[in-house]
Design a protein around this nucleic acid. Structure first.
Lengths: 188, 188
DNA sequence: AGGGTACTGTTCCTACTAGGAATAAATGCC
DNA sequence: GGCATTTATTCCTAGTAGGAACAGTACCCT
C-alpha cells in the first residue's frame, strides 16, 4: 500500500502506537520527553508536516476534539492501516547504523588548535550536560513501571531501551573522565 | 570578520587544518575515512557547497593544480584567517549535546509491535554492523602512529578521540549482547 | 477587572543537508 | 580497444532543524 516513508514518519507513528490520541503539539511534547534520547526529536513544523502526510495516506486519523469549551483542537490517532504499515516497516527495513553528530568529539579532534585547557573545559562542560541528560532519562525510566492491573506490559521494550540509554550515558561519563585525565596530563 | 557558520563548515575546516591541500573529492574521502565516526560525513554536494562558501569568506584558498598532465583540479587549503576563525570557534562555541538518530533503539522501542524474534534479529544484525565499524575505526587508530621524526605529534588528539570511539563501540557491543539475552528471555 | 506571563495549538519561513544522478576525464585491467 | 573503476564536479530533490508569527486559553497578582 504505502511507499516507504522516512524514518521520522515511522518514529511518530510509533509514538502514536502506544494508544493515545494526541494533538500535534502533544505529540511533539511526547517526542521531547521520550523519543529524543534515541532519535532527535522532530521540529514542530516537522511534526505537523508528517501528521498531514500520514493522515493523507490513511495511516493516521485526525479528529476534531469538541470537548474543549471554546476551542477546537485536532487530535491524531494511528489507524489499523498505520499499525500494519509500521509493523511491516519494523519487520523488513534494512538495519542502518546510527547517525551521530558529536560536537564534543569533533572539537576534541581539533585539540591541536584549541589547546589542552580549552579541551579540558570542553570535556568538563560536557560532563555537566551528560549528568543532566542522564537524570532526565532516569526520570523517564522510573515512570515506566509495570502496571499490575494491565493485562499487557506496555513498557517492557521502552524500559529495555531506557536501560540501554542509561548504560550509554554511564560509559560515556567514565570515558570523558579518563579523557580529562589524559588531556590534563599533557599540560605538565 | 566572519559570522558564525554551521558546525559542518568548521568540521571541514578542521580536516583542512591538518595541513594538506585537498580537492573537494579528496576532502570527502578524508571525511569518510576519519570524520564519520564522530560527525556524519557531509554529502559530496555539501562538501563542495561549503568549500565555495568558505572560499568566498576567505577561510579557505582554492588553487588550480596544474601538475596533472591534462586535467585541472582545484585544491583547497585553509588560510591563516580560516585557522584563526576555527580557533575562535573552538574556544567560544557553546557546548551542545550530541545529536543521535539511532534506528535500532528506535525500532526496539516499538518491540511490542515487532515481537521478540524480529527484535532479536534486529539486534543481531546490528552486532554485525558494530563489528565492522569497530574494525574500521581500529584500522584508523592503528594508522595514527607517532612519527618519531616529526617535531610535533600531529595525532595526539585524534588518537584520543579514536580511543573514545572504540570504547563506545565496545560498551555498545556488550549492551546489545545483554539486550539480546533479555529479549530472548521473553520468548520462553 | 485588567495586565502580564506561561502554556497550548498551528502555520509559515529560512537555511542546512542527505542522497543521488548526471556528466566527463583519467586510470587500470583483460 | 573496450570495459570497469576512480577522480572530480555540478545539479537536483526531498527531508528537516530551528524559529518566528499568530492566536486562544489559563493562571496569578495588583
Amino acid at each position: 500500500m504505502s511507499q516507504d516513508l522516512p524514518t521520522t514518519s515511522y518514529a511518530l507513528l510509533g509514538l502514536l502506537s502506544f494508544g493515545d490520541d494526541l494533538s500535534g503539539y502533544e505529540l511533539k511534547q511526547r517526542a521531547d520527553r521520550t523519543l529524543r534520547f534515541y532519535w532527535v526529536s522532530p521540529a514542530m513544523s516537522q511534526v505537523y508536516t508528517e501528521l498531514a502526510r500520514l493522515t493523507k495516506l490513511g495511516l493516521v486519523r485526525a479528529r476534531e476534539d469538541t470537548t474543549a469549551p471554546t476551542r477546537s483542537t485536532r487530535r491524531f490517532q494511528i489507524t489499523a492501516a498505520g499499525r500494519r504499515d509500521l509493523q511491516r516497516w519494523l519487520s523488513s527495513a534494512t538495519v542502518e547504523f546510527p547517525a551521530l553528530k558529536h560536537p564534543i568529539a569533533l572539537r576534541l579532534l581539533m585539540g591541536h588548535l584549541a589547546g589542552p585547557e580549552t579541551s579540558v573545559t570542553l570535556l568538563e562542560d560536557y560532563l555537566g550536560l551528560l549528568a543532566e541528560r542522564r537524570a532526565e532519562l532516569q526520570a523517564v525510566r522510573d515512570s515506566l513501571i509495570v502496571d499490575p492491573h494491565s493485562p499487557v506490559d506496555r513498557f517492557r521494550y521502552p524500559r529495555m531501551v531506557a536501560d540501554w540509554g542509561l548504560d550509554y550515558y554511564e560509559s560515556e561519563r567514565a570515558m570523558v573522565v579518563e579523557l580529562i585525565r589524559r588531556v590534563a596530563a599533557t599540560d605538565t
